[in-house]
Design a protein around this nucleic acid. Structure first.
Lengths: 130, 130
DNA sequence: CAGGATCCACTTGGATACTG
DNA sequence: CAGTATCCAAGTGGATCCTG
């Protein structure tokens, strides 16, 4: 396999789409989406405030926005129980679960190379502002 | 393998770190970073304006900011040639190349599931505002 | 050519208060 | 409880001009 073909098999010269994975990044790696998906995957079905507490510092407004987007993209399922007080549960969908190997790869790269990034940063900062 | 352990082997209950892959996402999936890395990987060493033209609509200021960040994180190498006119070349580093399988996984997921996302969006939009 | 400097428009996200 | 509505601070990206 040539080094030119290791990431993509078909070469597109369209300057407007220099990176074919941009749409996926927009869907999966928007802010707060990875903590949400990660938590829902690990902890299973969960209520709104539970989710909020697990993630930490996230305001209800923003959490709602992200959950709506994830629901629209089919990565998260929302179940509304018409009771008093109302109860809403969120869970990861099958499509969301299909991201598992991807996230595993990400965690793997993190474990293998995150310290290299830290080293590079220290070298850069030390070399530019001593 | 239980479904609780498929993404992470050790369970952390620290609410401040609900998602262990957040740092990687910040490093690799900041805005413009994937087009930059993708282009540099596919096209090889490249000058500033070349890179700018390949990516499309990106202002020099922002491109410089992202390149500085990628250089600091050790993902991109910058070579300055003191000539007139000055010539600067950017290329992907070894650490940057180590992202290749990750990006491949991303492209794979994209090819397999992006249409499902589109379908989910159409269903969601059709069901909420008919 | 490769940016740095400056100014500005817009978007995001947080804080707060309120509702069904 | 599960949001929505409103206001507001901050960060971000674009446009323009300028330099070595």
């Amino acid at each position: 396999m040539s080094k030119q073909e290791s990431w993509t098999s078909a070469g597109s010269d369209d300057p407007r789409l220099a990176c074919p994975i941009t749409p996926v990044v927009d869907i999966v790696f928007s802010r707060w989406t990875t903590p949400i998906l990660w938590t829902l995957h690990r902890e299973g079905r969960m209520r709104f405030v539970e989710l909020q507490r697990h993630i930490g510092t996230v305001t209800p407004k923003v959490l709602t926005q992200r959950l709506r987007q994830l629901e629209r993209d089919g990565l998260v399922l929302r179940t509304y129980h018409p009771e008093v007080p109302p109860r809403v549960e969120y869970e990861i969908s099958e499509l969301g679960r299909s991201l598992a190997p991807l996230f595993a790869k990400l965690a793997e790269w993190s474990a293998d190379h995150l310290d290299s990034v830290e080293t590079a940063r220290l070298a850069y900062d030390g070399g530019t502002l001593p």
